[in-house]
Design a protein around this nucleic acid. Structure first.
Length: 693
DNA sequence: GCGATCAGGT
DNA sequence: CACACCTGATCGC
């Protein structure tokens, strides 16, 4: 739960995700996503009264968040006072003190947070430096590196402070299976059950909160049936979600809720009240999404655990794991990092001890002359962080390129867009889209380096490149380049990108491996013999990180599901297309290869389409072919390398483990059916390698 | 009657 | 484990 008080040291006149107490005096409000614990005071009479008196005060959020918020009648009084800002569109906001008339300009950029539909992180740039408020987030390793707007040229921006989602910032939560792995595990379990007969139905025991939509949309897409929910009017303007939901109870997949749902379930009754179809009783299983995590040295086992005759728990997380948090923060490398959440069982001090080494200050204490390979980030004298562009000139030292993104840097001038919102204009987009051309950095070195370091923070090796020269951008500081990046946009939800799913999927790299397995016991860990069906992709990635040391065992998880299989249906066929299929053109060779490995996943990226507009061939990189739907691939490709697990890109390319075989769909089906039926599975123990125990 | 808080449950 | 709620009881306005 967020314990962020609402204000950031650098910009105390704005309030984020808290609307009570001191925050009642804010000049502007920001809401990162629509979860109640981030909306404290948002509908309190005191704030309502203040709005009536302070006509220049607005609430800024993403378009999806605005839609979700206003669907709730209790928040409808905000209607005229909410300004939605498109994701990845730097927007200038004037912060006016109505009493004194004092004014301060700030530029805010919303970055996708991957937590729930409409969730974003806020990047603020102004006279007091650049700061990032993450809200709640779930981003795979390497995702920060793929966000263009966190960079200036090739380097990550000079960020003064990060206000971070530290929900799982404890080594205990070292790793959480990726979204794709979890999704696949659930998908196969659901598939194996509902295909048995028209009377076999599944109840997804989800909590009352946004964030499960990508699960619903992907299951729907893959299985061809809509998911039953209690309400869907909040998605009325989000066709990509809406199309996969229904209020018709006759579907085999339910995510409806009822206070006595658990009790109903005992009696084979769904929350929506039905117990039979055509007078034939339904055969129901429940799947409860819940967070599962694995310590650094524990081996990941299942993403699905059987908890009873007809019930299962499935791994699902809205928040980044410890290693994902470390990857994110170490990449950003701010001067300061403040936790927004203190996980229970730990203390603020402990969390800070963990964050500190990932910040610049600690690094600055290091010897001045570091081997180039170790220099993570040039330390800069900062004064105002704002213009990072300018700083580039100041950097005397070679700066490691922290740009994992393979995307191409634009060689020519890029288009920067800057939107301005004035407080006087209430409407949403009054964005005057000012497009300013700026010269992009000459991409001198920028070329695309694919940094192979692992995303783990620990990565030590980085490529160094000399600093690039950038042109001065001129007066407007904030422009960010809009390159075509494809960041995993998670707005996905809304934009149907749930494809994200793919994320996981594709990421094989990331792979981790989780398997759905059932160990003989419900619980997993057993390592021994369980048959692991992993959702993940085939790639078994070798995890260098953790497992590396341990040897193979680590990979116990054999992945049975090949990504291809899953994708075969392509999931996304629908999805993708609708979304902006953007294609990314330049993909580094290395990635190409990967592509080859996982050919089918598709995926779409929301952003891509739009941005592609400016595609510039990157240096030397082969262009990918994007054939029809495979467009998506690109994205995933991208993810690949950058992805988390990807720690080392090389991993990906590692073909399957010698003894590993690609699971056949039929085999999987067989295993899942047994699993669904509660039968025990014969374990075939497969050795991962000689090391396997 | 409403809101805030706390306990308890899923 | 913990998340993001929901319900119910109590207290104050």
């Amino acid at each position: 739960m967020s314990s962020f008080e609402g204000q950031m040291a650098e910009y105390p006149t704005i309030s984020i995700d808290r609307f009570d107490r001191e925050n009642l005096r804010a000049r502007a409000y920001f809401l990162s996503h629509c979860h109640k614990d981030h909306m404290k005071g948002l509908r309190a009479p005191t704030l309502k009264r203040r709005l009536e008196c302070s006509l220049k005060v607005y609430l800024y959020c993403s378009p999806v968040t605005k839609e979700l918020l206003l669907t709730n009648p209790k928040y409808r009084f905000w209607e005229k006072r909410i300004i939605s800002i498109e994701v990845e569109t730097p927007t200038q906001i004037s912060l006016i003190d109505e009493a004194s008339g004092e004014k301060e300009e700030i530029v805010v950029t919303l970055l996708p947070a991957g937590h729930c539909p409409g969730s974003v992180m806020f990047l603020f740039q102004g006279d007091n430096g650049t700061v990032l408020y993450t809200g709640d987030f779930r981003l795979a390793k390497g995702e920060a590196a793929r966000m263009e707007l966190l960079h200036s040229g090739d380097r990550v921006k000079d960020i003064q402070s990060v206000y971070l989602d530290t929900t799982f910032c404890d080594p205990r939560f070292y790793e959480i299976p990726s979204r794709g792995e979890c999704l696949n595990g659930i998908l196969e379990l659901v598939r194996s059950w509902i295909t048995r007969s028209p009377y076999h139905v599944v109840w997804l025991n989800c909590k009352a909160a946004y964030g499960y939509e990508y699960l619903f949309t992907n299951l729907s897409e893959e299985l061809g049936v809509q998911v039953h929910v209690d309400k869907l009017d909040m998605f009325r303007n989000m066709p990509d979600i809406l199309h996969h939901l229904t209020t018709d109870r006759s579907t085999p997949i339910h995510a409806c809720r009822h206070p006595k749902a658990e009790e109903y379930f005992q009696w084979n009754k769904l929350p929506c009240g039905i117990t039979s179809k055509n007078r034939i009783p339904l055969q129901t299983i429940s799947i409860k999404p819940s967070t599962m995590w694995f310590g650094e040295r524990t081996r990941k086992t299942n993403v699905i655990v059987r908890t009873g005759e007809c019930s299962y728990r499935a791994c699902f997380s809205f928040h980044s794991s410890f290693s994902e948090i470390k990857d994110f923060l170490s990449y950003i490398c701010p001067v300061n990092a403040y936790p927004n959440v203190i996980p229970v069982g730990t203390t603020m001090d402990k969390v800070i001890e963990i964050l500190k080494p990932l910040c610049r200050s600690s690094q600055s204490t290091e010897p001045k002359y570091k081997p180039l390979g170790k220099l993570k980030r040039a330390r800069r004298v900062h004064l105002d962080s704002e213009e990072e562009d300018d700083d580039l000139f100041d950097d005397p030292l070679p700066v490691p390129l922290r740009h994992k993104v393979p995307y191409q840097e634009t060689l020519h001038s890029e288009v920067f867009s800057m939107t301005t919102v004035s407080q006087n204009q209430p409407e949403e987009l009054r964005q005057s889209q000012g497009f300013c051309k700026a010269e992009s950095m000459q991409s001198s070195l920028l070329t695309n380096f694919v940094d192979c370091e692992e995303s783990n923070s620990e990565s030590e090796e980085e490529l160094e490149v000399s600093a690039s020269l950038q042109g001065d951008l001129g007066p407007i500081t904030l422009h960010q380049q809009k390159a075509d990046t494809d960041v995993p946009q998670w707005e996905v939800f809304f934009k149907r990108n749930d494809e994200i799913t793919d994320e996981g999927l594709e990421n094989f790299p990331s792979s981790t491996e989780a398997g759905v397995s059932q160990s003989p016991k419900l619980f997993s860990d057993s390592d021994g013999d369980s048959t692991h069906i992993s959702s993940q992709n085939s790639s078994q990635s070798t995890h260098i990180t953790e497992q590396g040391s341990q040897g193979c065992d680590s990979q116990p998880d054999t992945v049975l599901l090949s990504s291809q299989e899953r994708n075969s249906r392509d999931i996304s066929s629908l999805n993708k297309d609708e979304y902006r299929p953007k294609i990314k053109e330049n993909i580094p060779a290395s990635q190409m290869e990967q592509n080859v490995l996982c050919p089918k996943d598709t995926y779409s990226d929301s952003k891509n389409r739009d941005q592609d507009v400016t595609i510039v061939p990157s240096v030397g990189e082969p262009t990918i072919i994007s054939g029809g739907k495979h467009v998506l691939e690109e994205k995933r490709l991208l993810n690949f390398s950058t992805n988390a697990d990807s720690q080392s890109s090389s991993d990906f390319e590692i073909p399957s483990t010698p003894e590993a075989e690609l699971p056949k769909r039929e085999h999987l089906q067989y295993l899942y059916e047994k699993l669904a039926a509660g039968e025990s599975i014969v374990v075939e123990k497969r050795k991962c390698s000689s090391l396997d125990i």
